[in-house]
């Protein structure tokens, strides 16, 4: 890109890029896409602000929330189920992700490796990456639909859905962690005669461990949010109760359920964030 030297104009300019055809085109494209999407989604801010009657009715019927024993019991059960699903999903996901991540990570030492050796090493790498990509790119709610169709309604297909999606996400994050680990200690091990397995065990794993733990906790946080909506497709958790109450127009019960969900999500978020902070410090 040898551009002719531009005439110096005596100004340096700030952090915002100055006018150029490239940036004007970019702005034009963003504006164009925004307008197109505006019409595509029938976005209507006027409607939102003027037609407030259904919204106010919905909100006013939510209060006071339903604190009857039956509702509280159902809420507790839903919360607990959501909790169990998210936790087990993250755990199974981690267990599945780990070996796939180890395979899907580029090794260090390839100097002098023969062609066949390199090919042999590349095959499991690409297979593992491919599996992880499939797991990850299908959203958990779609996995839930698949498992509900295959296994029937309930929290079990939901948990499996979370596990598969978590495995995909964690596998990618784990192998990125392993690849970013400082390489000198690992190379030092290899040049002392350690084989690939030993270098992995003593060099990469200890250096990546705290990241693994904190990523897994983060996955659990994400799962508890996901688990609340998996019920909408019949895959268990508190979402199922919310959907039923919605369909029965029992908005005060919905209020209790949603409130409990928010509390649980916040508590798990805080807890996990605190633990993660301790680990990485």
């Amino acid at each position: 890109m040898a551009s002719p030297p531009t005439k110096y104009e005596g100004r340096i300019g700030g952090a915002v890029p100055r006018f150029s055809w490239g940036s004007s085109l970019a702005i034009l494209i963003v504006v164009g896409l925004a307008g197109w999407s505006y019409y595509g989604t029938e976005f209507d801010i006027v409607d939102l602000l003027t037609n407030t009657e259904p919204a106010t009715r919905f909100v006013s019927e939510m209060f006071p929330p339903d604190f009857s024993t039956a509702t509280l019991q159902a809420t507790g059960q839903g919360v607990l189920e959501t909790f169990h699903m998210s936790f087990l999903g993250a755990l199974i996901g981690a267990v599945v992700a780990f070996p796939l991540a180890a395979l899907g990570t580029r090794g260090v030492d390839t100097v002098g490796a023969s062609r066949t050796e390199r090919v042999l090493r590349v095959v499991p790498y690409h297979v593992a990456r491919f599996i992880l990509n499939v797991f990850r790119s299908v959203p958990d709610i779609l996995w839930a639909l698949v498992f509900v169709v295959a296994l029937g309604l309930g929290p079990f297909p939901g948990t499996l859905a979370l596990a598969v999606h978590s495995a995909g996400v964690l596998g990618k994050l784990y192998s990125e962690t392993l690849e970013a680990v400082p390489s000198r200690p690992v190379e030092a091990l290899a040049s002392t005669g350690a084989d690939g397995f030993q270098s992995f065990l003593f060099g990469m794993l200890p250096q990546g461990m705290s990241n693994f733990t904190s990523l897994t906790l983060y996955m659990w946080e994400c799962n508890i949010r996901s688990a609340t909506i998996l019920g909408f497709v019949g895959a268990g958790g508190i979402g199922q109760q919310i959907l039923i109450s919605m369909n029965l127009f029992d908005y005060s019960k919905v209020a209790t359920l949603v409130g409990a969900t928010v509390v649980v999500v916040l508590v798990v978020d805080r807890f996990s964030a605190a633990v993660r902070k301790r680990i990485t410090d």
């Binding site: 000198r184 190379e187 030092a188 290899a190 002392t192 005669g193 060099g203």
Partner: peptide, 16 residues
């Protein structure tokens, strides 16, 4: 490699 010992300026130990 097992019979060649290396030592570097930056230690190159596994810190954890």
């Amino acid at each position: 490699r097992g019979s060649v010992g290396k030592i570097h300026q930056a230690y190159n130990l596994v810190p954890q």
